[in-house]
């Protein structure tokens, strides 16, 4: 009777070992499949993108305002012309300032992470 009990125990142990082996095999297989799927997802997911805002077009500057004291024209017409030329220059400065704003907004293009 003792021999039979010992035999049953050994048989049980062996069967348990086989079951464990099979379970480990399938476990590893499942894990590898999951890892593979996640790699596929990583490859197919779109990368983070940042499209810089295009710079506004420059405003053309006029030639400089005459600056010759010997021929200073202070007539109303001359003053109007000066104002006109300065107005164009101010627009050019505003445009340049706008480009500074845009370049500041685009700074984040250098702070993203590309993987």
């Amino acid at each position: 009777m003792q021999k039979n009990t010992s035999g049953n125990a050994s048989t049980g142990l062996l069967i348990a070992l086989v079951i464990a082996l099979v379970a480990v095999g399938f476990g590893a297989y499942t894990l590898l499949n999951q890892s593979n799927k996640s790699t596929d997802m990583a490859v197919n997911s779109p990368p983070p993108t940042f499209t810089p805002i295009p710079m506004p077009t420059d405003v053309t500057q006029p030639t400089s305002v005459p600056n010759n004291p010997a021929s200073v024209d202070t007539s109303n017409t001359a003053l109007d012309q000066d104002l006109q030329q300065i107005s164009t220059k101010i627009n050019a400065a505003a445009s340049a300032s706008g480009q500074v704003d845009t370049s500041i907004q685009n700074q984040s293009a250098d702070t993203v992470t590309i993987q």
Partner: peptide, 12 residues
């Protein structure tokens, strides 16, 4: 550009 405007306006 701003300094160019300043120069022109200084003449004015």
């Amino acid at each position: 550009r701003i300094q160019d405007v300043v120069d022109a306006m200084s003449v004015l």
